[in-house]
Design a protein around this nucleic acid. Structure first.
Lengths: 145, 145
DNA sequence: TTAAAATTGATAAAGACATTCAAAATCTTT
DNA sequence: AAAGATTTTGAATGTCTTTATCAATTTTAA
């Protein structure tokens, strides 16, 4: 059994939540996609495996996945929440093309360090952050010419 | 007349949009608050000056304020859009307490520079960014003990 | 002043997500 | 393994934010 799956089950056990086939299925489908999905996209993917699963269950399970550290919510500013695998994935931020809306995962340890320091300087204990860089990707810039 | 107001009017003129009393009032109230406001908060504040203004107009004007560079949208992840003055204000990001939801404006030129570089390294032309730092503020940490 | 065009406000609509609740599934105890 | 307690589920409904519609009004250019 994969590490992530185990972690999710352990989380459920710790919280005294029940292990249902729906939760297992939603985890599997989510984990298999390996990309950002909106709740609706995930719901559609899950339905292909079991059409009887309701979308409320997908929303509920997505919340559990986040709480257990398996998923992470990202928000590109288009009014739709998106979720991506967080467990075992190295942390990263997003560089988003405002033209074609595609995103690239980026990461700079120096920025992370400075964020820590910035928070500390204000007396905060940093628990997380979200950084979105918006710009025009090379592809769109090329096309614009 | 204030600089910001002038900029807003010039924006309207440039876009061949009309100068209405509502737009003037919404600008004034927004500018006077000098803090993040949700559309609803702004709507309520505007109503105190003129109860006949509709909330659709507030939403519409808020969009214009953003387009004209007067306002900037921020999103603390609580499902409500918030807007803050952007004109004449130096750029900053937000450090948000996940416990009491209060926010502090922060800024680090080194981080800004590194963001530029990060985008450039991926061939992107950076047009903007949003950075949210989440943590526990000194006040809440103290109370927790 | 008048006509063309944009704007307004009330209302309805859309869209994402949360809640409700009876039925079903899971877990615990025996 | 049966029963009882408890949680979860799915369908429907509700809520909340934001957007669209449209007739009436206001602004602006001529």
């Amino acid at each position: 059994m994969q590490e992530a799956r185990k972690q999710f089950f352990q989380f459920l056990a710790r919280k005294k939540l029940k292990f249902t086939s729906q939760r297992g299925l939603i985890f599997d489908v989510f984990w298999h996609i390996k990309d950002h999905v909106s709740p609706e996209e995930l719901y559609n993917a899950v339905k292909q495996n079991d059409p009887r699963v309701g979308q409320a269950t997908v929303y509920r399970t997505l919340k559990l996945l986040c709480e257990s550290g398996i998923a992470r919510e990202v928000n590109f500013g288009d009014g739709v929440a998106r979720f991506e695998p967080a467990f075992g994935q190295s942390h990263h931020d997003h560089l988003i093309c405002t033209n074609c809306h595609r995103s690239v995962e980026v990461m700079d340890p120096k920025i992370e360090k400075l964020q820590e320091k910035l928070a500390r300087d204000h007396g905060f204990t940093l628990t997380g952050h979200k950084l979105y860089l918006f710009g025009i990707c090379p592809h769109c810039r090329e096309k614009a010419r």
